[in-house]
Lab assay of single mutants.
Amino acid sequence: NITNLCPFDEVFNATRFASVYAWNRKRISNCVADYSVLYNFAPFFAFKCYGVSPTKLNDLCFTNVYADSFVIRGNEVSQIAPGQTGNIADYNYKLPDDFTGCVIAWNSNKLDSKVGGNYNYLYRLFRKSNLKPFERDISTEIYQAGNKPCNGVAGFNCYFPLRSYGFRPTYGVGHQPYRVVVLSFELLHAPATVCGPKKST
């Protein structure tokens, strides 16, 4: 009989979020998941679920829940969905086509923008091939755009693969920082350890 609540607040209220190319993952297990707390949290810009209804989450049990978190621009949030393409979905964070879970995003301009620009948040701009679902690539190898080998030196046709967002408070909404948490639900042939409040007695 599990009684402790799942530590969703640790994920959602973290002081610093990860850059999207180096997205953070927390495994959540052996706890009671009260999703209504999240669902009623006012400032969400997006709360979209795939393969599961957000209002039914509290009735369900899962083997594991993974909480992935990172920061992207407002106009990139739409790429955090199954079957998407674009710089983020291709080179930074890719969801599987059969994704079961929820994508939760909110504007973090007050936290993550600075006058003069916040350059701490990076994304991958160049990559030889697209990421596989949930693949994480933190390499900083110089990207070779031409035929000539770069030998690890940036220059003509040789690019550092990461780019900084440089968030400023005055940017338009599409270019403002958004914090994103992706909850993915794993249902294995194993005992369920993460259940909603109704199922955990």
Score class of each variant (00 low, 15 high):
74 G>M: 04
20 V>S: 04
44 F>R: 14
111 L>P: 07
165 Y>H: 04
172 G>C: 01
67 A>L: 13
192 A>R: 14
158 C>L: 02
77 V>I: 12
100 T>V: 14
98 D>Q: 10
19 S>N: 09
104 I>C: 09
59 D>P: 06
90 D>Q: 15
131 L>W: 01
19 S>D: 07
132 K>M: 11
140 T>I: 09
60 L>N: 08
152 G>C: 06
155 G>Y: 04
166 G>F: 03
157 N>Y: 02
184 S>E: 07
55 T>E: 15
173 V>F: 13
9 D>W: 11
169 P>Q: 05
188 L>M: 12
39 Y>N: 15
164 S>N: 09
57 L>N: 06
111 L>V: 13
98 D>P: 10
153 V>Q: 15
156 F>K: 06
134 F>I: 05
161 P>V: 04
63 T>Q: 11
28 I>E: 01
61 C>K: 13
71 V>K: 03
106 W>N: 00
7 P>N: 15
161 P>C: 03
196 G>Q: 11
106 W>R: 07
181 V>S: 02
133 P>H: 07
68 D>Q: 03
190 A>W: 10
47 F>D: 03
56 K>W: 06
58 N>P: 14
77 V>H: 04
119 Y>H: 10
117 G>W: 03
176 Q>K: 04
172 G>W: 02
187 L>W: 14
121 Y>L: 12
108 S>A: 12
52 V>F: 12
193 T>G: 13
14 A>G: 08
68 D>K: 04
3 T>D: 11
52 V>E: 04
156 F>V: 09
72 I>T: 05
35 Y>S: 09
28 I>M: 15
2 I>P: 13
5 L>V: 14
14 A>I: 06
140 T>G: 11
47 F>S: 09
91 Y>C: 06
66 Y>V: 12
57 L>P: 05
80 I>A: 02
32 V>Q: 10
13 N>D: 07
13 N>G: 09
102 C>A: 03
26 K>S: 08
11 V>M: 07
175 H>E: 06
161 P>Q: 04
145 A>C: 04
107 N>Y: 02
158 C>I: 02
131 L>I: 13
65 V>D: 00
25 R>T: 05
162 L>V: 15
164 S>V: 04
25 R>Q: 03
14 A>C: 07
169 P>D: 04
57 L>A: 07
27 R>G: 07
128 K>G: 11
58 N>Q: 12
155 G>K: 08
186 E>P: 09
100 T>F: 14
172 G>H: 00
52 V>A: 08
68 D>V: 03
54 P>G: 09
65 V>M: 14
24 N>V: 08
64 N>T: 15
54 P>W: 14
49 C>L: 02
118 N>L: 04
145 A>G: 10
84 Q>F: 06
48 K>A: 07
8 F>I: 07
166 G>M: 04
83 G>M: 10
131 L>V: 10
131 L>D: 00
179 R>C: 00
60 L>F: 11
37 V>E: 12
129 S>H: 13
85 T>Q: 12
195 C>K: 11
163 R>W: 15
120 N>G: 14
105 A>V: 12
119 Y>I: 06
22 A>R: 11
59 D>W: 09
66 Y>E: 06
27 R>S: 10
20 V>G: 02
108 S>D: 00
197 P>H: 15
123 Y>P: 00
71 V>R: 02
136 R>M: 08
47 F>P: 08
110 K>I: 07
10 E>S: 11
160 F>M: 14
149 P>M: 10
177 P>Q: 01
100 T>S: 08
4 N>C: 09
106 W>Q: 06
134 F>L: 09
114 K>G: 06
168 R>S: 02
95 L>H: 00
55 T>Q: 13
23 W>G: 01
129 S>K: 14
151 N>E: 13
97 D>G: 10
129 S>Y: 10
91 Y>G: 05
6 C>H: 07
166 G>N: 06
11 V>G: 03
201 T>G: 14
92 N>W: 02
122 L>D: 10
91 Y>K: 09
39 Y>D: 15
67 A>Y: 05
114 K>S: 12
52 V>N: 05
29 S>V: 10
15 T>M: 08
183 L>A: 02
125 L>G: 15
189 H>S: 14
135 E>N: 07
179 R>I: 00
103 V>L: 03
63 T>K: 14
186 E>V: 08
92 N>F: 01
68 D>R: 03
108 S>V: 05
190 A>N: 13
136 R>C: 07
12 F>S: 03
67 A>C: 09
66 Y>A: 07
95 L>G: 01
99 F>W: 11
109 N>V: 10
128 K>A: 12
30 N>P: 07
103 V>D: 00
21 Y>H: 10
110 K>Q: 10
60 L>W: 07
107 N>T: 05
186 E>H: 11
75 N>E: 15
166 G>L: 04
114 K>N: 11
181 V>C: 05
34 D>S: 08
130 N>M: 12
144 Q>R: 10
177 P>Y: 03
149 P>R: 10
17 F>S: 04
114 K>F: 10
2 I>M: 14
86 G>L: 02
42 A>P: 09
81 A>G: 08
168 R>I: 02
183 L>Y: 02
162 L>Q: 02
96 P>T: 06
116 G>M: 08
116 G>S: 13
14 A>E: 08
195 C>V: 12
138 I>P: 08
185 F>C: 05
114 K>D: 10
97 D>Q: 13
109 N>P: 02
178 Y>G: 01
92 N>H: 02
17 F>N: 02
126 F>Y: 02
173 V>T: 14
85 T>A: 10
102 C>Y: 03
14 A>V: 08
39 Y>W: 13
55 T>H: 14
25 R>K: 03
109 N>L: 06
21 Y>R: 02
142 I>Q: 05
21 Y>P: 04
180 V>S: 01
120 N>Y: 10
107 N>C: 07
51 G>N: 14
172 G>D: 00
75 N>I: 07
50 Y>L: 01
66 Y>Q: 08
91 Y>H: 09
138 I>F: 08
57 L>Q: 06
48 K>M: 06
89 A>C: 06
145 A>H: 01
162 L>E: 00
182 V>M: 01
90 D>Y: 08
43 P>C: 05
168 R>D: 00
74 G>A: 05
80 I>Q: 01
24 N>L: 05
137 D>E: 05
125 L>R: 04
109 N>H: 06
101 G>W: 02
25 R>C: 00
4 N>L: 09
188 L>H: 13
136 R>F: 05
12 F>Y: 04
173 V>A: 12
33 A>H: 08
185 F>I: 08
51 G>R: 12
153 V>W: 09
174 G>D: 10
90 D>E: 09
107 N>W: 03
156 F>I: 09
101 G>I: 02
143 Y>P: 00
174 G>E: 08
80 I>S: 01
94 K>F: 02
110 K>F: 07
74 G>F: 03
122 L>R: 13
5 L>P: 15
38 L>T: 05
47 F>I: 12
157 N>V: 02
79 Q>A: 06
166 G>P: 02
36 S>R: 13
81 A>F: 04
151 N>C: 09
179 R>Q: 00
56 K>V: 09
95 L>R: 03
96 P>K: 06
54 P>N: 10
46 A>P: 08
122 L>C: 11
70 F>P: 00
61 C>S: 11
43 P>N: 10
